[in-house]
Design a protein around this nucleic acid. Structure first.
Length: 417
DNA sequence: TCTGGGGTCCTAGGACCC
DNA sequence: TCTGGGGTCCTAGGACCC
């Protein structure tokens, strides 16, 4: 048995935890750079604010309806996510942290009233973290996802928990479920299925798995079995190590000068090194890329990337920054308005396995450790690489960002009694 | 003026091995 | 007339997830 615990409108709920006056009010959260809508409270959904809507297009409507607007605050969301996951971990022998706001729990062999247990979990998470969650329970992950969807839509009168086995007429529920509301099926694939005469989840459950495999691949075959109640997608309590690390941003304004771009990619390289270090990984390859805006039709467009292979796998920021800089020199062309850049580490391996060079002159890991310690102790960005500080112009627009309530001492909430 | 930032997996085809 | 059988690795592109 699986349970899927999913935070309700997670980013919007995070903002609400520290601004309870927004309870019952419409909220939207914007992507980096305040570009487009990436999260909506239920009230904002009722007002028909579309997911992914560019903010500049809906701004008048947002003001007219008095919708509260927030820039993304990942320090806050990440920290609250961690707290929610901590609480959830106490309720099952094994859990899989599936995304920032979702967690699968292994419910195998637990006492029988799983719905009651689920309600207790929701209540505890809400009380201890302030975040409302919903839970779906089923014998497969795909069905647990679907049960969770039902729970969110208020299917159960008892509260935000649905146990698939307690549904009287699952055929009716499946018949009323659109294909692209299922986990793993997008719009595109739904259209392909419809061309084969399958137009809802019930029809898909009744399809022949072997035929589905032939026509749409092994992924679709698994979905059919999962809908039938046969589990094919196991719980992954131990996340496999990352295969790739990517750090990129769109800029707050278009950039043209080499030094502006250099500051940006230096920063991305340094952040990538931190990610490597945290996950005890090393990389043997770095790829740096730059691009103009895909939406800008008036100015000439350009995008390119450069790849550097290291003599030995590294996790040192100094190595990554140097490689990013050299790569940038190879692909930079003056005269373009760059909108975005990034650093990709596509070939990761555990640091402990990294093959050292016979001729290595230095071990940069000690330096990396020391820098990390200083920044943890005295605060983010206490020490930085100079090339990161050549320019600030690439920094994101974050006009509506709330304080980092839980991760910065200076931004702690003050409460008057 | 203005449109995110991460990830993973599968498949097909080509190159190469014995 | 008639030309094997079994693998791996890599890459690009497509698709999906949050």
């Amino acid at each position: 048995m699986f349970a899927l615990a999913d935070c309700n409108n997670f980013y919007a709920s995070c903002e609400r935890v520290f601004q309870p006056r927004l309870e019952g009010k419409p909220i939207v959260v914007l992507s980096n750079n305040d570009g487009c809508v990436i999260a909506r409270s239920n009230e904002a959904k009722v007002l028909q604010v579309a997911m992914g809507a560019p903010y500049f297009k809906i701004q008048p409507y947002v003001q007219q309806e008095g919708i509260a607007v927030f820039s993304s605050n990942y320090a806050l969301y990440g920290d609250l996510s961690h707290r929610v996951m901590q609480v959830l971990s106490g309720f099952a022998p094994r859990v899989e942290l599936y995304s920032i706001d979702e967690c699968f729990l292994d419910f195998t062999g637990l006492p029988q009233d799983l719905s009651g247990y689920g309600l207790q979990i929701c209540k505890t998470v809400k009380q201890w973290t302030g975040i409302p969650i919903s839970i779906g329970i089923a014998p497969t992950k795909t069905l647990a996802k679907l049960a969770n969807r039902l729970a969110k839509k208020g299917y159960s009168a008892n509260g935000p928990v649905v146990d698939w086995r307690n549904i009287a007429d699952t055929d009716a529920v499946l018949a009323a479920t659109a294909l692209d509301d299922l986990w793993g099926i997008s719009r595109r694939t739904a259209v392909k299925l419809q061309a084969l005469g399958i137009d809802n989840a019930l029809a898909l459950r009744r399809a022949d798995p072997k035929r589905m495999r032939q026509q749409l691949g092994v992924v679709m075959e698994r979905i059919v079995y999962e809908l039938q109640g046969q589990s094919c997608i196991p719980l992954e309590a131990m996340p496999p190590p990352r295969k790739q690390i990517l750090t990129s941003r769109s800029f707050g304004e278009k950039l043209s000068s080499f030094n502006d771009l250099r500051a940006a990619v230096s920063h991305f390289a340094a952040r990538s090194a931190e990610k490597l270090h945290r996950q005890h990984l090393a990389t043997s390859v770095l790829c740096v890329f730059v691009a103009t805006s895909p939406f800008d039709t008036r100015n000439p467009s350009y995008s390119n990337s450069a790849t550097t292979v290291f003599n030995q796998p590294t996790q040192a920021a100094a190595d990554l920054i140097q490689a990013a800089h050299q790569g940038l020199q190879r692909i930079y062309k003056p005269g373009f308005s760059y909108q975005r850049a990034g650093v990709i580490l596509p070939d990761l391996q555990p640091m402990a396995w990294a093959q050292k060079s016979l001729f290595a002159e230095r071990d940069t890991n000690e330096l990396q450790d020391t820098l990390g310690q200083i920044n943890r102790r005295y605060g983010k960005n206490t020490v930085r690489y100079a090339s990161e500080m050549l320019s600030q112009r690439w920094h994101m627009r974050q006009q509506f960002k709330s304080p980092s309530y839980t991760t910065q001492w200076a931004e702690l909430l003050a409460v008057r009694a």
